[in-house]
């Protein structure tokens, strides 16, 4: 495998992770997944509906990808830890995307509760992938607690605004040795490319694919963008200058 993503002790060929929510129908989700090349797909954990239609997301995705449960909707460390433990039993995985939300409008993390939950889950043997704000201090604390990756947001979940603070992401990349996955707020393919060009190891995309006008096409675009961004990062870009630097030779001009 060339240039694998090493995450939680495993190797992945894809640097695109996908969410499973918001697709127009199940077939679109499955087709988008196939085209995206994603090997990891997030799912939420919710109370079973005892009346009405049987929920079969996990059965559908089982065998097609690694299921990564999240603690979406949790506002306290206590709820997040219990949700993670339930997810571990339901899906027979110790991987968890940890979300502990502090604000219903922005869905920004409650950092205090997030750190508490991360510490407890790491001690309980989980492979913790925390969704967090783009604050280098929080990211460093999460890494120090033993998380398997850092997943800072580009912009609020579902907002599609793309990377709002490239400066912060560069700071986080420079100080972080563990995998860095940009998660939340990606809007289109170029946002994913920029993330990889900034040195992110991967991106997690849900709404930008699921709610695109043509989700399967956007999944293809994301796959290519992630590949392009990764190559560009490895290729080493030219620096940005404030003045021009001619590319054609300056000697041998006619008329001189």
């Amino acid at each position: 495998m060339e240039d694998p993503l090493i995450l939680g002790g495993e190797r992945f060929s894809s640097r695109l992770l996908m969410g499973s929510a918001g697709f127009p129908n199940q077939q679109a989700m499955l087709d988008a997944l196939a085209v995206s090349g994603a090997e990891i797909v997030t799912v939420a954990i919710r109370r079973i509906s005892l009346a009405g239609q049987r929920e079969d997301t996990a059965s559908l995705l089982d065998g097609r990808c690694r299921l990564l449960p999240n603690t979406a909707g949790c506002h306290t460390a206590r709820d997040a830890v219990l949700t993670a433990q339930l997810a571990r039993d339901a899906l027979a995985t110790n991987w968890i995307k940890l979300e502990v939300i502090g604000d219903r409008h922005t869905l920004y993390p409650d950092v205090e509760e997030l750190l508490a939950a991360a510490g407890e889950l790491v001690r309980d043997g989980f492979v913790v992938l925390p969704y967090c704000n783009d604050d280098p201090v929080t990211c460093r604390k999460l890494a120090d607690l033993g998380c398997a990756a850092i997943m800072p947001l580009a912009a609020p979940i579902g907002s599609g605004m793309g990377l709002l603070n490239r400066y912060n992401l560069e700071l986080i990349r420079a100080q972080t040795q563990i995998p860095l996955i940009l998660d939340a707020g990606i809007g289109t393919a170029s946002d994913a490319a920029i993330a990889l060009e900034t040195g992110c190891d991967a991106v997690l995309v849900n709404s930008a694919i699921a709610k695109a006008r043509r989700p399967v096409m956007m999944a293809a675009a994301m796959r290519q963008a992630v590949a392009a961004g990764r190559l560009a990062w490895q290729a080493g870009r030219i620096p940005q200058r404030r003045h021009a630097e001619p590319s054609s030779p300056e000697s041998g001009l006619i008329g001189t």
Partner: peptide, 10 residues
């Protein structure tokens, strides 16, 4: 008692 299952999520 809580009975839960995986569902679509981001």
């Amino acid at each position: 008692i809580e009975i839960v299952q995986p569902m679509k999520g981001g």
